[in-house]
């Protein structure tokens, strides 16, 4: 049995102009200890997917499909049952360390919170546990006391506190939603390493959400490329990166600046994907990526591509997958 299995997940948000489909039937799964990456542009639904798993979407949204955690469909759980899953079975690291911590509570109290909620511990034991957690995210207790407030810490330090909070109960799954986007480049790598290390050390599965292919390559074993609420390509990270088959994946990769390709040195411009993400209110026929695709033809306009295998454990949704050699 898979640890987490998402089957046919749809997310619809009610707006004034009627319901809006944000996630259009995605499937993926993750085994115990496995690390999965979700990549895509802003607005492709990667954060929505993680919030749907946590049942933390705004009340106006509807989630259909199955979210099986150890075989149990947590999408059917009520709020009270979900409270026992959140922080306990699934921990989450958010993007903005500056605003994701409560400014009026000490970091000690905020880390201790999930322990209070999910573990029956005496106060002394809890303090010991929180100190251990701070040590494990490289915030030595001698310098970073439990009584510090978030505003006394830097962005990177706050993100470490955030990580300590998320792993406090050693959840089965750790979701990291763009954990380094708001951070200084110099700290990004450290934070990524830390998350990966902790996931391996405690045997936690990791879902890493990012728009940065480099981050995904560094931390994950499996990857899922999302576009406008649909999965374009998914498979083992090494295979996908070696044989990028969807034109969108290729476009994403080509848009990464490489050393020595700057215009100052007389080389070509940084490549971009023309156009922008379709407005979710528009009802496109055919392949969702068609308007921005350089390989599009009649069939792409008329019908939607099904999943097709490139190699075992690597599939793509495209009529014209790019095949190398």
């Amino acid at each position: 049995m898979k640890l987490l299995e998402i089957k046919n997940l749809y997310v619809t948000i009610d707006t004034l102009d009627g319901p809006l489909q944000i996630i259009k039937g995605i499937d993926f799964s993750i085994e115990k200890g496995e690390r999965l990456g979700i990549v895509g542009e802003s607005g492709c639904g990667k954060s929505i997917t993680s919030l749907a798993i946590m049942a933390l979407l705004p009340h106006k949204s509807k989630v259909t499909g199955q979210i099986l955690l150890n075989g149990e469909d947590i999408n059917l759980f009520n709020e009270e049952q979900m409270c026992r899953i959140r922080g306990n079975k699934i921990g989450m690291i958010f993007q903005e360390p500056m605003t994701a911590l409560n400014p009026v509570k000490t970091i000690g109290a905020q880390i201790a919170e999930s322990l209070i909620l999910h573990r029956n511990m005496k106060k002394r034991q809890r303090i010991y546990e929180v100190e251990q957690l701070l040590e494990s995210v490289d915030l030595p207790v001698e310098r970073f006391g439990l009584n510090l407030y978030p505003h006394q810490l830097s962005g990177g330090q706050r993100q470490r506190v955030m990580i300590a909070m998320a792993i406090a109960c050693k959840p089965d799954i750790l979701i990291a939603d763009e954990p380094t986007t708001a951070l200084d480049v110099t700290v990004q790598k450290q934070i990524l390493e830390l998350i990966k290390e902790l996931a391996m050390k405690f045997g936690m599965s990791l879902i890493m959400i990012s728009h940065d292919l480099g981050v995904i390559a560094q931390t994950t074993q499996k990857v899922m490329i999302m576009y406008a609420g649909e999965v374009m390509e998914q498979g083992e990270t090494s295979k996908v990166f070696k044989h990028m088959s969807h034109p969108y994946t290729q476009g994403l990769f080509a848009a990464i600046p490489k050393p020595g390709s700057s215009r100052l040195e007389g080389k070509k411009r940084l490549s971009t994907i023309p156009g922008s993400v379709p407005d979710p209110t528009s009802t496109l026929q055919g392949c969702i990526f068609e308007p921005r695709c350089r390989f599009s033809d009649d069939i792409c306009l008329k019908s939607e591509p099904e999943k097709s295998d490139i190699s075992p454990g690597h599939h793509v949704r495209c009529f014209h997958p790019v095949v190398k050699d």
């Binding site: 933390l56 409270c83 959140r86 922080g87 921990g91 958010f94 605003t99 409560n102 919170e113 406090a168």
Partner: peptide, 13 residues
């Protein structure tokens, strides 16, 4: 605020 969602993500009702 974001920290409200953080608290809920920890399992706080």
């Amino acid at each position: 605020e974001d920290y409200i969602r953080t608290a809920q993500a920890k399992g706080s009702s």
